[in-house]
Nucleic acid binder design. Structure first.
Length: 356
DNA sequence: AAACCATACAACCGCCCCATC
DNA sequence: AGATGGGGCGGTTGTATGGTT
C-alpha cells in the first residue's frame, strides 16, 4: 500500500505559475512565513496548488536573492569540482553557490555543463586503457615518502618520475596514470588488499609500500568512475563495487562494474591487458604515472564535513579547469573516501564510501 | 510568413529518507 | 511502532523561445 497523496490532485492547479499566484504566495510568506507546514499553506494563502508545488516555487523562484541567468566560470568550476567529489548532491552544491538553487544547477548541469565538459575531452581520450602491472615492478624501489600539501598537487606531472610512491599516511591511495595515448586511468588501492596485481601494505613506520606483482598475462583493471558508454556519453560511477575481472588470460568478455554488467563492445579501451613481459616497454615513451593519497589534510576536511554538510574545504575548490576535467575522471570514488567516516560502501549516485 | 525543429528552463512526479508526533 | 510531513533526488514533461527551412 502506497502513501496517501499529499493533496487532492483533482482540485489543484498544475503548470506554470501566474503572476497573481506568485504574488499571493510571496505576500503570504512575507507576512506569515511558511509556518513549517507547506501542505497547509496553499489553503491558508488562498492558492489552489499542491503544498509541494508551493514549496518548489518559493525555493526555486520566489524567495529573495535568487540568482538567475548565466553561470560564471567560477560557478562552473565549483559545480564541476563538487560534482566530481560528491556526485549529484545538488543541494550541497547549491549551498556553495549563493543564489543558485539545486534545480537550477541540475538543469544547468544536464543541459549545458556536461556537454561543455564532454566537448573538452577528445573522443580518443575517453578511454580507459592499459595500466600494466609491469610498469610498477619495473620501478627499482619505492620512492621516498611523498606528501602532498594541496590537492592541486594531485595532478602533478610525473613524466620524469618512477611509477609509484609510498605514502606517509594511513589512508588508501589513488593511483592514476596516463597511457601512451594520454588517456587517463586511475585506481583506488586499499591497504593490505591484493588488488588485481597490486598490493598495498603498511610498513613498520606506517608508510605504504605499493608493490606490483609480475604476472605475465595480467594487467590492472582500473576501477574507473568514468567510462565511455553508448553514444559517446560519459558515464560516471554509481555502483556498489569496483570494476573487476577475474579472467587470467586477458580474454575477458565481460566485466562487472558494480551493479552494471558492461559488455565487451561497450568497453573498448576500458579493460586492457598486457600479454607479454614487454608490455610496459612499448608504453614507456609517453607514459606518465603518479600516485597520490588522501591523507591527513583530507581528514581535516572530513572533520569539517562531519560537523556541517555544507562545509567544503575551500582548498578543494581551487582547481583550474584542466584539473576539474581530470577530477571528473579520477576522483569521484575518492572524493568521499574520507568524507563520511560513518558510512561504509554505500552506493548512492556516483559516490563511494569506505570505512577504515 | 509559416511550419518545423532544437534547446533551455520551469515544473511535476514518484520515490526515498528522516524527523517528529 | 506507525503515520505524517518536509526535504531531496533522478527522471521526465510541458512550454517558451529562437533558429532554420
Amino acid at each position: 500500500m502506497g502513501r496517501a497523496p499529499c493533496c487532492d490532485k483533482a482540485n489543484v492547479k498544475k503548470g506554470p505559475w501566474s503572476p497573481e499566484e506568485d504574488a499571493k504566495l510571496k505576500e503570504y510568506i512575507d507576512k506569515f512565513g511558511t509556518g513549517g507546514n507547506w501542505i497547509a499553506l496553499p489553503q491558508k494563502a488562498g492558492l489552489k496548488r499542491c503544498g509541494k508545488s508551493c514549496r518548489l516555487r518559493w525555493l526555486n523562484y520566489l524567495r529573495p536573492n535568487i540568482k538567475h541567468g548565466e553561470f560564471s566560470d567560477d560557478e562552473d568550476r565549483i559545480i564541476c569540482s563538487l560534482y566530481a567529489s560528491i556526485g549529484s548532491r545538488w543541494s550541497i552544491i547549491a549551498a556553495q553557490l549563493p543564489g543558485r538553487t539545486d534545480n537550477d544547477i541540475k538543469n544547468y548541469w544536464n543541459t549545458k555543463l556536461k556537454k561543455k565538459l564532454m566537448g573538452m575531452i577528445p573522443l580518443d581520450q575517453r578511454k580507459l586503457p592499459l595500466f600494466s602491472s609491469n610498469s610498477l615492478t619495473n620501478s627499482s624501489s619505492p620512492q621516498s615518502h611523498q606528501s602532498f600539501s594541496s590537492l592541486s598537487q594531485l595532478y602533478r606531472d610525473c613524466t620524469t618520475q618512477p611509477y609509484y610512491y609510498t605514502t606517509s599516511t594511513k589512508s588508501s591511495c589513488l593511483l592514476t596514470g596516463y597511457d601512451a595515448h594520454q588517456s587517463l586511468i586511475s585506481s583506488v588501492i586499499q591497504p593490505n588488499m591484493l588488488y588485481n596485481n597490486i598490493n598495498l601494505t603498511t610498513t613498520a613506520n606506517h608508510s605504504y609500500n605499493l608493490q606490483g606483482h609480475v604476472n605475465q598475462d595480467q594487467g590492472l583493471i582500473s576501477p574507473m568512475q568514468f567510462y565511455p558508454g553508448k553514444d559517446n556519453m560519459l558515464v560516471f560511477g554509481g555502483a556498489d563495487n569496483q570494476a573487476s575481472c577475474s579472467s587470467s588470460d586477458g580474454s575477458c568478455s565481460q566485466i562487472s562494474y558494480g551493479n552494471k554488467e558492461i559488455k565487451q563492445e561497450q568497453m573498448n579501451g576500458f579493460c586492457n591487458f598486457s600479454n607479454n613481459m614487454n608490455g610496459f616497454s612499448h608504453h614507456q615513451e609517453n607514459q606518465r604515472f603518479m600516485l597520490d593519497h588522501y591523507g591527513n589534510q583530507m581528514n581535516t576536511t572530513t572533520a569539517a564535513w562531519g560537523a556541517n554538510n555544507n562545509a567544503i574545504s575551500t582548498t578543494q575548490l581551487q582547481y583550474d579547469l584542466e584539473e576539474v576535467k581530470q577530477l571528473m575522471i579520477t576522483s569521484s570514488n575518492m572524493g568521499l573516501l574520507l568524507n563520511d567516516e560513518n558510512k561504509t560502501h554505500e552506493s548512492r549516485g556516483a559516490m563511494y564510501y569506505y570505512n577504515y
